[in-house]
């Protein structure tokens, strides 16, 4: 039982990181219908920014995260402006291929400058000991991850639901042309979406990097996983991304704890395919049919 609860907590902590990344995917997909392949690489950049904050300036966790957020948000906006904006009305597949190009570009620029080998954060950066609750040992760092994630998600929900910019994002997501006619700046709404999504990826990058090792290709795996999570919950839906991320994290940890860690990725992909085939709109998404 203790093992089971610990596994659930592990699952929630990795799942909340997936959820953070999935939020970026889902928001970008919602607004420009693009599977942003480069999203995982923004996470990787975030991890490197965090690493250098620690190594060069000896910054603690929270300031490192904030710097990573800012730089990732900048990077996100720049990639959108340079690579995706010229393709605003191009077929979706063209933008998808461009996103794959952006992803490769970020990865190999990092390989060129920082070499391909794996690195780790200093061990004291992200360790808070563990707490003993009702006889069960719970590592506090896992709780910190979950806590930061929940706080950010509430913040994102508030931005999307309550602010004017959030309203414009929702308007552009539901009908770009109509939103434009109502005087909403589509470019600004899209840029802002990339800012939020990339900033969240930056946070996720620092935490993911601190929990595991970092290298220039580290973004691919969590990137694809987070995409699975976004589809799982219903791509385009923000609560769906959170639910999908948490569920995927928990399923993954349980599979590796009770079966084998080598097939956990296969299980994640199997879930993806089953969802796509059986219910492409995901758990919380809505269905859209092509009009004849």
């Amino acid at each position: 039982m203790e093992l089971f609860i610990q596994q659930i907590i592990n699952g929630i902590s990795i799942g909340s990181i997936y959820a953070l990344i999935a939020l970026g995917y889902t928001m970008v997909y919602g607004i420009i219908k693009l599977i942003n392949f480069a999203h995982g690489d923004i996470l990787m950049i975030g991890a490197y920014v965090g690493l250098y904050c620690v190594l060069l300036f000896k910054l603690p966790l929270i300031p490192s995260i904030i710097i990573a957020m800012i730089l990732c948000a900048l990077l996100g906006v720049v990639t959108e402006k340079v690579a995706y904006r010229p393709l605003r009305n191009a077929p979706r597949i063209a933008v998808l291929i461009t996103a794959i190009g952006v992803s490769f570009l970020l990865e190999y620029i990092m390989v060129y400058f920082f070499k391909a080998n794996s690195r780790t954060y200093p061990t004291d950066f992200f360790s808070f000991g563990s707490a003993n609750i009702a006889g069960i040992t719970i590592p506090i760092d896992k709780m910190v991850v979950a806590g930061i994630t929940i706080a950010l998600m509430i913040l994102v929900q508030i931005i999307i639901k309550k602010t004017k910019l959030g309203k414009s994002i929702r308007a552009v997501s539901s009908d770009r042309d109509a939103a434009q006619l109502m005087g909403i700046s589509v470019d600004r709404a899209i840029s802002f979406t990339f800012i939020i999504g990339s900033a969240l990826a930056g946070v996720a990058g620092v935490m993911y990097g601190a929990m595991f090792t970092i290298n220039p290709l580290m973004g691919i795996q969590p990137g694809i996983k987070a995409f699975v999570a976004a589809v799982f919950g219903g791509i385009g839906s923000i609560p769906g991304a959170i639910l999908g991320g948490l569920l995927l994290g928990i399923i993954e940890t349980l599979v590796s704890a009770y079966f084998s860690s080598s097939i956990k990725d296969a299980v994640a992909f199997a879930i993806l395919i089953i969802i796509l085939v059986v219910r492409p709109s995901g758990l919380l998404g809505k269905n859209v049919k092509e009009k004849v």
Partner: peptide, 21 residues
């Protein structure tokens, strides 16, 4: 690495040149 960077740039530039608006 330079080769991969070049490929990636090619991919982006070709897509933008051919489908851009």
């Amino acid at each position: 690495e330079i080769r991969m960077i070049l490929y990636a740039l090619l991919l982006i530039i070709i897509m933008i040149m051919m489908c851009g608006e």
